[in-house]
């Protein structure tokens, strides 16, 4: 029984551990070296899915700290990734409050909204308050591939949820 409870805790912490690991490690989800235009913002997919499905597994404070770590590793001004992640949480929570049943299509569409708001804030702040230049073409590719890959990760996370965590979703 005790062993099961420890295992459950580990499974439940899986998404949060993955988020922290993605933010702090060298591991990235950009395949620029092999396929030049492929870049993906995996963190926002991860946050959006779990905030929508199981917000109890993704505490706001942890996401905020993961954002700060991401800023340090990537060299962005502190707090900018946290802000962008918090916008994702906000949209996710709002959608969760407003909807009863969600499908992959509705989640995909609302994810697009969340990503637009989040990236708009992120790049507006970066453009106006830092010296970092960025290519709009790369932002476009990044958003496109993040959106494109969302259903794939949605299915994978759903499988993880059903297999290891159990469906206690509303």
């Amino acid at each position: 029984m005790a062993k099961n409870s420890i295992l459950n805790k580990i499974y439940n912490s899986g998404p949060l551990i993955l988020l922290y690991y993605l933010c702090i490690s060298e591991m990235d989800t950009n395949l620029e070296k092999t396929f030049e235009i492929f870049t993906l913002n995996f963190q926002i997919i991860l946050i959006y899915f779990w905030v929508l499905k199981r917000p109890d597994l993704m505490a706001n404070g942890h996401i905020f700290i993961a954002g700060l770590i991401n800023d340090v590793v990537m060299g962005f001004p502190l707090g900018i990734s946290s802000l962008s992640y918090l916008i994702i949480i906000f949209v996710g929570t709002y959608v969760r409050n407003k909807s009863v049943n969600t499908t992959i299509a509705s989640d995909w569409f609302t994810f697009l909204m969340a990503m637009i708001f989040s990236n708009l804030l992120f790049f507006s702040l970066l453009n106006n308050f830092s010296d970092i230049s960025f290519s709009y073409q790369k932002i476009g590719y990044n958003m496109f591939f993040t959106l494109f890959m969302f259903p794939i990760f949605w299915l994978l996370f759903n499988v993880y949820q059903l297999t290891f965590i159990g469906n206690r979703d509303a």
Binding site: N60, F64, L68, G79, I80, S82, L83, L86, F129
Partner: peptide
């Protein structure tokens, strides 16, 4: 699980951001 509200964390992130910038 949510010890902090999104709004309070947004304010905190903004303060950290402007202090850093």
């Amino acid at each position: 699980a949510q010890k902090f509200s999104v709004l309070s964390l947004i304010f905190l992130a903004l303060i950290i951001f402007f202090l850093d910038v």
